[in-house]
Design a protein around this nucleic acid. Structure first.
Lengths: 218, 218
DNA sequence: TGTACATCAGTGAACGCGCGTTCACTGATGTAC
DNA sequence: TGTACATCAGTGAACGCGCGTTCACTGATGTAC
């Protein structure tokens, strides 16, 4: 995983940084992001608290790095899912797989904003990358590939504001489909991960599949 | 608002309880639920920390009460929206109005679960009440009122598991529509409130309206 | 290959802070006669 | 109406705790000659 370049000391540094982040994730998984404590992470690594300041400027920088990594991991998951060819269903599965693999990672990115903290600027580029894969898949659909005038009002709005699409040449119909994809899958996912379907006695798997299918039936 | 019954002391107690909760909400709105501090709330009320223990057994009980109140307020908002008659659009507007009026209240109910804490049992009944209004509105739609065999696979699943609907006599088609309503609107809302559309340069209002319209076009 | 030096990971003590919670108490409010 | 008593809201001190962060330091690792 980690690059094997640089001096021994550099490699050691990189390795310890990764270990710190791994422990931090474990701690977040247990008690949520707001409970992340530098001292506790250090103790788990057999170090004292101040030692971590050799690797991160402070708690905020650590969290920032974790958020960026979380975004990055979703982008990678999408890239892997898109590798065989453009396929919305593969992306839908990848999104859910990514979310279920570590719910707290999902929440760190898409859940309740951490108060007083805002995502680092790099995440914008990664978000564009993520949506890029989705737009690829949608554009490849015959139903969305036409560049003609979109029948729905939403597409008109989207034709004006396409910053989120980067410089992707997707036609308005594909933009609309991609966005619907995004909001609807997150709708099921966020309720599922927050445990609301368990309380309702429903099977999230079926609901997610149903939404995916419905999206493509258009 | 508060009942004017009971002895003066009881009325005073109820009043102070309400004040404590109001301050707690303000604090949650500022820094999130995990930052809620009894001492800080007490200080804002011109009291010392231990005084709050006359009113709540501890921090957990206070949060539990806030969660219950949050659920209750949504149920009330739905009841008010449904008063003129069954109308899905009115409920959709009520949901968004409720969420935007106090995003942290939304997050307390539908956002990242507070670690180590789980919603009190009363909330289940309120959730059924909330879905009841939604089911009323959907059942009233001609498209969903038929009791015939549902065309979609989702409706089959829903016909089996209808605990979340309480004893509501909604036909499977209405169950499916209500659930779609619920997940799709939360999809837009949760992304909106977490600030993801701002980052994308999109107008959440338009997206929400589009989803509402699409849901009824069926 | 050996020695002198520089780098730097990690320690331990200390800083000030705020947290939830307990306890014995004061003093005001309400009640009973 | 007045007095004796009970109730109970709120205080102030104290408990132990963990937090993020700083600082001067030790001692191991790597580098230069």
């Amino acid at each position: 995983m980690a690059e094997q370049t640089g001096t021994p000391r550099q490699r050691y540094r990189a390795q310890v940084r990764e270990e710190i982040k791994a422990r931090a994730w474990a701690q977040i998984a247990e008690a949520g992001a707001s409970a992340l404590s530098l001292n506790a992470v250090a103790k788990q690594l057999g170090m004292t608290g101040p030692a971590l300041y050799r690797y991160f400027a402070g708690r905020d920088e650590l969290i920032t790095e974790l958020v960026t990594d979380a975004y990055r991991s979703l982008a990678d998951a999408f890239a892997a899912a898109a590798a065989p060819g453009p396929d919305p269903v593969a992306l839908a599965r990848a999104l859910r797989g990514w979310a279920l693999a570590d719910p707290h990672r999902y929440f760190l990115v898409y859940g309740t904003p951490v108060p007083g903290y805002q995502a680092p600027p790099e995440t914008t580029a990664i978000a564009v990358e993520i949506m890029g894969h989705l737009l690829d898949a949608c554009t490849a659909r015959p139903a969305d590939s036409q560049g003609g005038a979109p029948a729905e009002p939403l597409a008109a709005h989207l034709a004006e504001r396409r910053d989120w699409a980067g410089d992707h040449p997707a036609p308005p119909a594909a933009l609309a489909t991609a966005l619907r994809f995004w909001t609807r899958l997150h709708g099921v996912l966020s309720l599922e991960l927050a445990g609301h379907f368990t309380g309702m006695g429903l099977d999230p798997d079926r609901l997610y599949d149903a939404e995916t299918t419905a999206l493509l039936a258009r």
